[in-house]
Amino acid sequence: MNTMTEAAPVRPIEPTSYHVKEGNQGIALKIKDFKLWYGQSQALHGIDMEIQKGQVTALIGPSGCGKSTLLRSLNRMNDLIDELKIDGRIDVGDFDMYGPGVDVIALRKRMGMVFQKPNPFAMSIYDNVVYPLRVDGVTKKSILDEVCERSLRSAAIWDEVKDRLNESALGMSGGQQQRLCIARGIASDPEVLLMDEPCSALDPIATAKIEELISQLRGQYTIVIVTHNMQQAARVSDNTGFMYLGRLIEYGATDTIFTKPHKEQTHDYVTGRFG
């Protein structure tokens, strides 16, 4: 049940031993029998899934199968929706993120998120990138400058914007905006990066850049990416989960899913024979 709100008692989450930087092995997120209802209609039917640290996990499946819903459950973005009901648990480190007394804001600070449509804020490029730090209370200019440059470099956009950091982010192209959003997503050095169809609004060149970026970030971050593009999933991910009608039909190494899946439905979907 979605009984906690943002005003729930605060239990601070320290960056724990769990952080990827201190070990690339293990499980980042453990989803256990997770169910979700939008009002009366059930969108997720008991998902069980373990997301590996430092690896790229892709979620594929036909439209409306609940990929975004699952992804948004991982940083509790669904809390914004009224009439939402939840059952089951998602463990991050050693506790249930839907358990009582969890500080949602602190939780979200550990998760970066990139959305389907680029959504830069109406501020300068610089302010966009350091926004996660600013809301965290960081005011020291040297830290902000350093983070800004590092994030923009990581997002492969530094060279394009380094001379116009103080211009509005809304003046950039769509692909640049999306890479800016990725830079923003990784600015606070999160443990998990959640990406919901990050390339769907982009042209092939920008898409290629972002795929390359994901490959570079592999190992540093745990990445969960939702995509409709089968080739993309095959190219960038280590593990792939195939979802259908709110269920996780098959989950395993990407090679396996794409070459010799165990389930008929998976096979049909990845070969494009899906009705």
Binding site: A106, K109, F121, P132
Partner: peptide, 12 residues
């Protein structure tokens, strides 16, 4: 999407 972007950054 803008609000969500901000909340996802850990903003209150």
């Amino acid at each position: 999407s803008m609000r969500e972007g901000s909340l996802a950054c850990g903003a209150s």
